[in-house]
Design a protein around this nucleic acid. Structure first.
Lengths: 151, 151
DNA sequence: ATCCTAAATGATAGTTAGTATCAGTTAGCA
DNA sequence: TGCTAACTGATACTAACTATCATTTAGGAT
């Protein structure tokens, strides 16, 4: 089987749960490994559907633990259930394709620098920020130019 | 360069609806004037509670029209119902007090400039962006330092 | 190894936020 | 003044969670 270049020193989500003092259960194993092997971003309901053997409550509880621990990010999509994705880098922002919903992560020092300059003109004390960039991803762009070959 | 279009009497939300070809009804009058005279940011359910004489469906429908028309912005709050606020300037971002939920609006050219530099390293075509800054607002800061007068 | 118990589970019921339906009402034009 | 499509609101419904609680289980103590 695949026993090779896993450069992931990143602790598995199950370990994250253990580090919170939570028990290592089969349900938690199922949920975390499904997240790790599944698609980039997912909704809670998607996960429930993929794991019929795990109770809904448990799926939701596990997600909540992981979000609280900072191992998952929850991103509220306008209209619809929030999506979750593994937080791979400490602080980052998201790109969301408006066509297909694909979620990406990026990090840019300038964004952080802007925050500092904003601090001056904002009334109150900044505690955090969030930036989302809406895109049309390359594959959606491609299929778009396929169909609309006018001009 | 701002073309002093701010001078124009801000069109009432009711006018916005009329401009969409919608009829001027008493329910729509109630909803729009409540929004205009109410607090900064509100949830749909709040509005329903404040307007028991208007049906829930109508409140939700009216909000949807206004959001579609760009007259209201919908901001998805993590955990909870989205909040709405009147879109006072064309493009802006929000500050959200994590303590009391107060929502503010700001605009900063640097944010827009950052977008341009991000365009280079983002895979796909940027269609929009959204930034939210989490703050502790001044009044919450004040009440905080009241109670915790140690340290 | 087995016992013990707090932690965890999952079925189910409840809640919240929002949408669909549709019979009755009304704006607005002719 | 009448007509009719637009609109309304009561209600039923759905989606996305959250709470409850009897049963099961992880994992430390013995």
């Amino acid at each position: 089987m695949t026993t090779e270049s896993q450069v992931r020193q990143e602790p598995s989500l199950l370990t994250t749960l253990e580090d919170l003092g939570l028990r290592k259960t089969s349900a938690r194993y199922a949920v975390t490994s499904r997240i790790e092997n599944g698609s980039d971003a997912f909704t809670a309901e998607e996960l429930c559907r993929q794991l019929p053997e795990v109770g809904r409550a448990t799926v939701y509880r596990t997600i909540r633990h992981l979000v609280d621990a900072g191992a998952l990010c929850k991103l509220p999509i306008l209209d619809g259930a929030p999506m979750y994705s593994i937080a791979r880098v400490e602080h980052h922002h998201h790109t969301i394709c408006s066509k297909c919903g694909a979620v990406g992560e990026f990090r840019h020092s300038t964004v952080e620098r802007v925050m500092r300059s904003l601090a001056k003109e904002i009334d109150g004390q900044i505690t955090g920020h969030k930036m989302e960039i809406f895109i049309t991803c390359n594959s959606c762009l491609a299929s778009e130019s396929d169909s609309s070959s006018d001009a």
